Simulated scan of single mutants.
Amino acid sequence: MLCDPAFRPVVEAFREGIGAGGAALAITAGGRIVVDVWHGTRDEAGTLPWERDTVVNVFSVSKSLVTTLAHVLVRRGLLDLDAPVSAYWPAFRTRTTVADLLAHRAGLPALRDPMPEGSAYDWDAMTAALAAEPPWWEPGTRHGYHAVTFGWLVGEVLRRATGTSVRDLVTAELGPDLHIGLPAHAERRAASVLPPEGSAGVAPAPGPVALRAFTNPADLLVPGAINTPAARRAQIPAVNGHATARALAALHGGLADLLGSDVLARATAPRSDGPDEVLGGRTRFGLGYMLPNEVRPFAPNPRAFGHTGAGGSLAFADPDLGIGLGYVTNRVLITPAGPDPRWTPLLEALYR
């Protein structure tokens, strides 16, 4: 384990907030790792210790990986954000741009008709259904969190722009211990996701868009499904990324070098800011990256960017502090709005 003395209060706050299960925290500053710590257990029985190379499902933090891939392609001239999606994906019916897909403005956060069992694990079935789906609102006019569809929508554009799957792009471009679709050889290192012990808030009654956005297809809602080989190995790029905290911190702390200043500035400028058609509160997004917002206030600096994940995972960069942070956990807490209570003390210590 590693902890620069200046960050000791952050690490103490991290350890105090873990509770049941396990977690890991990593922070980079000035291009070097200054915190790399882990604690607790990684299996359902609570007997296997969390280890340095333990990976875990980070849920929607996965979107930050997909987003970063998109901007890597932009920097290389392989992806035009202002181009219509149909320029890369001819069967795609909705008239919208790649930028609108990334900014949750395409109007495709959900599928109306129930998808057959197993569809979440079937890339072709999901992308074909989304290509034919009429938008829920006029693209570009409003935004709403594309909770699960984001990964298939953006991922299919990336696949068509490069001829390479999202799974292989992540491996080739973003480095070790970051995965969309966990390789079989890494399963022995994977922490089991523990079911929620309770709720830290009360979710509003979902409207028809939100209900379908989170439940169609329903495969991952089956108890225990998230820990099965089928769910781990599938390509569900919005929600089944697996990572270590160290890899997330290194990625986000190094985005300025990876993407270049111009590409990164465009990627992180507010593009969607206001009422969210799916989540109900006010959210903020750049071109794929989440920005601190009313629903998920993950950092006090509005210029921070990254993504939160259901259950508590978090990864972000703060360009003013020059840091990248990754926090991963296998103990799910349900926090419909507001920060995860485990983040609050460590972030207070970080920004003190």
Results as ranks from 00 to 15, higher is better:
residue 339 P to C: 13
residue 96 T to E: 03
residue 326 G to R: 07
residue 100 D to F: 06
residue 315 A to R: 03
residue 200 A to D: 15
residue 164 T to L: 07
residue 314 L to R: 09
residue 159 R to E: 14
residue 202 V to F: 02
residue 64 S to G: 15
residue 77 G to N: 07
residue 141 T to N: 05
residue 150 F to L: 12
residue 12 E to G: 02
residue 106 A to W: 06
residue 279 L to M: 13
residue 199 S to I: 02
residue 13 A to Q: 13
residue 329 T to F: 03
residue 153 L to M: 08
residue 227 N to D: 15
residue 167 R to W: 00
residue 338 G to D: 06
residue 119 S to H: 08
residue 263 V to R: 00
residue 57 N to I: 15
residue 114 P to N: 08
residue 93 R to Y: 02
residue 235 Q to I: 15
residue 240 N to P: 10
residue 101 L to T: 06
residue 342 R to A: 05
residue 122 D to I: 01
residue 116 P to I: 07
residue 225 A to S: 07
residue 249 A to V: 00
residue 115 M to N: 03
residue 294 E to L: 12
residue 292 P to T: 02
residue 265 A to D: 14
residue 121 Y to S: 07
residue 42 R to M: 15
residue 343 W to M: 03
residue 71 H to V: 00
residue 340 D to S: 12
residue 289 Y to A: 02
residue 109 P to I: 04
residue 350 L to W: 01
residue 116 P to T: 10
residue 328 V to E: 01
residue 316 F to M: 04
residue 143 H to T: 06
residue 124 D to N: 13
residue 123 W to L: 06
residue 141 T to G: 02
residue 349 A to E: 10
residue 119 S to C: 08
residue 275 P to K: 03
residue 215 T to Q: 02
residue 83 A to Y: 10
residue 112 R to H: 13
residue 15 R to Q: 14
residue 179 H to T: 04
residue 133 E to R: 14
residue 117 E to W: 06
residue 256 A to D: 14
residue 241 G to I: 05
residue 220 L to T: 05
residue 124 D to R: 15
residue 54 T to F: 09
residue 313 S to C: 15
residue 100 D to L: 01
residue 291 L to C: 09
residue 21 G to T: 10
residue 10 V to C: 13
residue 281 G to L: 13
residue 56 V to Y: 03
residue 153 L to N: 06
residue 119 S to Y: 10
residue 197 E to V: 04
residue 11 V to I: 06
residue 103 A to N: 13
residue 31 G to H: 09
residue 268 T to G: 09
residue 91 A to M: 01
residue 189 R to H: 14
residue 97 T to Q: 03
residue 14 F to E: 06
residue 186 A to P: 00
residue 40 G to C: 12
residue 203 A to R: 15
residue 181 G to P: 09
residue 89 W to G: 06
residue 283 T to V: 01
residue 98 V to F: 01
residue 20 A to D: 14
residue 146 H to L: 12
residue 113 D to Y: 01
residue 90 P to S: 05
residue 87 A to R: 14
residue 288 G to L: 09
residue 153 L to Y: 04
residue 226 I to E: 15
residue 217 P to Y: 07
residue 235 Q to Y: 00
residue 305 F to T: 00
residue 337 A to L: 02
residue 181 G to R: 08
residue 66 V to W: 00
residue 170 V to K: 12
residue 117 E to Y: 07
residue 107 G to K: 08
residue 139 P to N: 09
residue 151 G to T: 01
residue 308 T to R: 01
residue 3 C to D: 12
residue 171 T to L: 14
residue 335 T to K: 15
residue 131 A to L: 10
residue 341 P to G: 08
residue 287 L to V: 04
residue 331 R to K: 14
residue 276 D to P: 07
residue 257 D to V: 03
residue 307 H to A: 13
residue 165 S to R: 10
residue 174 L to M: 07
residue 115 M to V: 04
residue 160 R to G: 04
residue 197 E to S: 11
residue 342 R to F: 03
residue 123 W to E: 11
residue 25 L to G: 14
residue 282 R to T: 09
residue 124 D to W: 07
residue 258 L to G: 00
